[in-house]
Design a protein around this nucleic acid. Structure first.
Length: 207
DNA sequence: GTATGGATCTTCT
DNA sequence: GAAGATCCATACA
């Protein structure tokens, strides 16, 4: 069993944390997966919620590092972030995709993809639908059972656990690319994906 | 394969 | 009242 990442890991520059989170394990209740896609957000650029300053919504972002920032997107999806940088700096890493490793049955039920909807195996290891269980920030929170009530809970000793890379992922190479799904400052190369992973929400454009 | 629109809620103006 | 760090179904090529 790998151990959780500590506060010093999250207190660093947010882009470094985003890169280093690729290959780490995310766990909630009986479900878990390896992080294969992240994005960094910082108060100095307009795509970040903290750009507008300290409000009730963004208070978590400006708080202590190592805390979960969960908010509702487009009225439907809960998105999970890890608060970074020292307290007082508004920055966080959005967890965008996982490669599921444990509790796949529970994930399929939560996501509403029963066996009858599976299209069949497209590869030697995973079915088409399993590849898409956590291939997006709104999907993985459903699959892991993470909701708005988890906002502001600690990643250091709370219900959501993020642990350092398991041995099999020790040599994972994160690839930098443009951020996606946003209209402001999307050109920043602050999205990181695990090289070659089939579980990301979108393959990187850059080499 | 790409393109489009609807669902739905929290926050801030 | 409008905007938004999304997902899915549907339509068409």
């Amino acid at each position: 069993m790998t151990r959780r990442l500590g506060a010093p890991f999250y207190r660093r520059p947010v882009v470094e944390v985003a890169r280093d989170l690729v290959g780490c394990e995310l766990r909630h209740e009986e479900t878990a997966g390896i992080i294969v896609e992240t994005e960094a957000y910082h108060e100095t650029e307009p795509a970040c919620h903290a750009y507008v300053g300290l409000t009730r919504r963004t208070a978590t972002l400006f708080g202590a590092p190592g805390v979960a920032y969960v908010y509702r997107s487009y009225g439907i999806h809960a998105l999970l972030n890890a608060v970074c940088e020292p307290e007082g700096v508004g920055a966080a890493v959005l967890i965008r995709a996982l490669e599921p490793t444990e509790g796949l049955d529970v994930m399929r039920v939560r996501r509403g993809v029963g066996a009858e909807r599976q299209v069949g195996n497209r590869g030697p290891h995973a079915s088409h639908s399993d590849l898409q269980l956590c291939s997006g920030p709104g999907k993985l929170t459903v699959a892991l059972g993470i909701e708005l009530v988890d906002n502001a809970t600690s990643l250091l000793d709370g219900p959501i656990r993020i642990s350092r890379r398991p041995p099999a992922w020790r040599d994972t190479v994160p690839v930098a690319d443009r951020r996606i799904g946003i209209t402001k400052a999307a050109e920043l190369p602050w999205r990181f994906t695990a090289a070659g992973s089939r579980y990301v929400s979108r393959r990187p454009v850059l080499a």
